[in-house]
Design a protein around this nucleic acid. Sequence first.
DNA 1: CTGCTTGCAAAGGCTTTGCAGAACA
DNA 2: TGTTCTGCAAAGCCTTTGCAAGCAG
Lengths: 145, 145
Amino acid sequence: MSKLYGKSKREIAELLRSKDIHPTAQRIEMAWCLLSRPQHLSADEIRLMLNQEYEQVSQATVYNNLKLFAKKGVVQELIVSSDRIYYDSNPNPHHHFLDLDTGKIEDIPNCALQISQMNINACIEDVSVIVKGRRKQLDLEQVHP
Amino acid sequence: MSKLYGKSKREIAELLRSKDIHPTAQRIEMAWCLLSRPQHLSADEIRLMLNQEYEQVSQATVYNNLKLFAKKGVVQELIVSSDRIYYDSNPNPHHHFLDLDTGKIEDIPNCALQISQMNINACIEDVSVIVKGRRKQLDLEQVHP
DNA sequence: CTGCTTGCAAAGGCTTTGCAGAACA
DNA sequence: TGTTCTGCAAAGCCTTTGCAAGCAG
């Protein structure tokens, strides 16, 4: 399995093809931007990032392709608040921490959270854990600035 | 601690007062309906239930009071899909199962799901687990009708 | 040439809000 | 009498969709 992040655009095109997605210029830009590192972005954040210098991708295309990416397993839709959908550049199963102070979403490493028991009479397709909290202030200077 | 469900309207009024909510007619109807049993309802489902026979509560009031109930801990906001917010009549911490066939949300008893390990450097305020899956067909007649 | 994509604009759906009138203490 | 609450209508916001034009194989 190749690296997850920091792919070249050529590699991105290949990844898209491998997921049965026709690699158009817009899609390559979007995936390249999203998959540059672990991150959690809304459709609008992605559109703004892409169009900073000049208009590269339209709003409709951003929305449509994000849905497509999620369906094909390139990224993961993340439902943490009711305002908007976030897209997680890590498509593999893992859990999330929402920092209530900053609103930022972070991945929880699988080693940091384990579900020990699950007695549910069903074919389970997905388990998502969302932990909400506030980062501890380890730095005393923040208390006495 | 008194029973959670099936309260009389008088008891509902008392519950609301205990949560620092002025018990108006509309609020009592809403809470009485919601807290009649364990359930997960959207704002619109609640409005429809309340107004089946005659207009009791307006849309704006339903939305405003649900937000108020959630803030005061009478019910719990449930974010499982991006389309709408659900309100859970059980305000205590627990987890949820989403049936992908029916779209119905069910509570997962705490005994059926346990998190064994959680190494997160933060003050945790909430942990929500959403399990998505399909109920197993235990009835063979459904396979050979 | 044909099917897929893009992008604009409009529509859709849920939720929030401004405001006037009603209810209540 | 003053504050709180309700309800109507409109606005807001994110997202989806219809459709014509563009692009690619």
